[in-house]
């Protein structure tokens, strides 16, 4: 039986990181969709209904916190797991993101790309 490929939506304005995500996640067998700012992120999350969202917080137009708040308010989207991957390293930012409904918070300089992919897989299995 042909199982539907899981879809990961990445909200990230750093094109270098997005390229690496695309390569790594595609290799793992996932479909990837990208948004370069918060507004585009909300729009694509609503249309694509991904299985997992990887969310950067410092993105243009609408920051990651606002994106998180909006998707968690929407009953159709609220259940989608959100993995925050950000450069913000303060405990207050982590607490805020978790309080807003993020499933996990990872700081970009503390994790390798493989570790991020492993975490993503754990939410999709």
């Amino acid at each position: 039986m042909d199982e539907r490929r899981k879809k990961i939506l990445v909200v990230e304005d750093d094109e270098h990181i997005s390229k690496v995500y695309h390569v790594k996640l595609s290799k793992e067998g996932y479909d990837t969709v990208f948004a370069v700012n918060g507004e585009e992120g909300i729009e694509k999350i609503t249309i694509e209904k991904p299985d997992l969202i990887i969310l950067d917080l410092m993105v243009p137009k609408k920051d990651g916190f606002a994106v998180l708040e909006e998707i968690k308010k929407n009953p159709d989207l609220a259940k989608i797991p959100v993995l925050v991957l950000s450069n913000l390293g303060q405990q207050s930012d982590k607490d805020r993101a978790i309080a807003l409904g993020a499933n996990e918070y990872m700081v970009k300089v503390n994790y390798s790309m493989q570790e991020v992919v492993d975490r993503a897989r754990s939410y999709l299995s």
Binding site: I17, K24, K108, V109, N110, S112, Q114, V116
Partner: peptide, 9 residues
Amino acid sequence: KPKGIYADM
């Protein structure tokens, strides 16, 4: 080339 995910760039 910072650490973490940037090391894979």
